[in-house]
Simulated scan of single mutants.
Amino acid sequence: MRVEFDEPKCVAAGQCVMVAPDVFDQRDEDGVAIVLDAEPGPELHDEVREAAAVCPAAAIRLVEP
């Protein structure tokens, strides 16, 4: 799985960080999300899928083989 993130779409809601904190974080200055791990291990896939599903801006796209 590869995580693609459309930063301009991000509304800084932080849902992704709450669901998958090992993969996402937020910048201190504006709260916009950042991807910590663009290719998370299989043990994190369910969390990342949920983070993409709950993102209010649909800024997270998952590329799965």
Results as ranks from 00 to 15, higher is better:
residue 41 G to Y: 06
residue 20 A to K: 02
residue 44 L to A: 11
residue 19 V to E: 11
residue 61 R to I: 11
residue 12 A to M: 12
residue 35 V to W: 07
residue 50 E to T: 13
residue 53 A to S: 15
residue 6 D to F: 14
residue 62 L to K: 02
residue 32 V to K: 05
residue 3 V to K: 00
residue 17 V to Y: 06
residue 39 E to N: 14
residue 53 A to K: 10
residue 52 A to V: 10
residue 34 I to E: 14
residue 33 A to E: 07
residue 40 P to Q: 00
residue 10 C to N: 04
residue 38 A to K: 07
residue 58 A to W: 10
residue 7 E to G: 00
residue 26 Q to T: 07
residue 54 V to K: 00
residue 12 A to Y: 12
residue 14 G to W: 07
residue 41 G to W: 09
residue 52 A to D: 08
residue 5 F to H: 03
residue 36 L to V: 08
residue 54 V to W: 06
residue 16 C to F: 07
residue 55 C to L: 12
residue 15 Q to M: 15
residue 49 R to P: 09
residue 61 R to H: 14
residue 34 I to R: 12
residue 27 R to S: 06
residue 12 A to K: 02
residue 27 R to W: 12
residue 51 A to D: 10
residue 53 A to R: 15
residue 39 E to S: 12
residue 36 L to K: 14
residue 48 V to Y: 05
residue 60 I to N: 03
residue 3 V to C: 08
residue 10 C to Q: 04
residue 44 L to D: 11
residue 52 A to M: 08
residue 2 R to N: 11
residue 53 A to N: 13
residue 48 V to A: 03
residue 17 V to M: 04
residue 4 E to K: 10
residue 53 A to D: 15
residue 50 E to L: 15
residue 11 V to T: 13
residue 2 R to D: 10
residue 37 D to R: 05
residue 33 A to D: 05
residue 9 K to M: 13
residue 34 I to F: 09
residue 56 P to E: 01
residue 58 A to E: 15
residue 7 E to S: 12
residue 31 G to P: 10
residue 47 E to H: 14
residue 38 A to L: 06
residue 4 E to Q: 13
residue 19 V to A: 03
